[in-house]
Design a protein around this nucleic acid. Sequence first.
DNA 1: ATGGTTGTTTAACAA
Length: 281
Amino acid sequence: MTAAPYAPIEGPPKAPRGALRIATWNINSVRLRLPLVEKLVAAARPDILCLQETKCPDEHFPAEALKALGFQHQIFHGMKGYNGVAILSRVPLHETGPRHWCGLEDCRHVQATLVNGTEIHDIYIPAGGDIPDPDANAKFKHKLDFVRSQAAHWKKTKRDRPRVLVGDLNIAPFETDVWSHKQLLDVVSHTPVEVEALTAMRANHAWVDLSRQAFPEPQRLYTWWSYRNSDWRKSDRGRRLDHIWTTPDIAPKLKGFHILREARDWPQPSDHVPVIADLAL
DNA sequence: ATGGTTGTTTAACAA
């Protein structure tokens, strides 16, 4: 295991021998930031890259360019203007279901199964708008409904195979997942009602939060810094919104965990940075 | 101090 969560990835640009490197990244437009995928591949060479907020209808998805970067296997579901998820892979996988929640076909979940039977879930939970009241804000209601549907789904799903769940879950569950617990208690992404829903979703399938297995509290961990701060590094008002979970059988197989904070300073950056886990599956 | 920025799509919305 690495000693520091934000350490630049050094040495050979590969996962440890025998480990599969899985990365998740809210890229905030895959077309605009295609050059940054190249940078990520050069820096970290993920075997599987799960993207959120591709903001790209399928007919415009840059499949060929991503194939040229080594991702021969691709599953993507996008729409015009917002949302959109994709799993890009160097290793074979095939799509499985379901992927629609709350009766909407809004491209927030894609799942696939590897040849060894491991399931990969790539999820983009609704951000939830600004007002943390489901009666006053339909987006916040949708967020809670989405997480609670997921929680119910994972409760009834038999724990019969290894699973990995990654994505922009848009919730920072722990006090040390945000720059100020007190100041964010009423801010969507860290309100108690959301945290409770996400905690149930995690507990209902005994998911292990790999970020916190690798770097337990009270170490602060962030994966997102707002565009609205003039100097994100100086103010460091971050939140841990991007997560990698696994079922308990494969959590001990974690060989490395990285939050690629340096990506927040890449040209025209996403406001989220890639999160990477090396798993000896 | 109730601001601030970015992306998509073109003035409004989502984050």
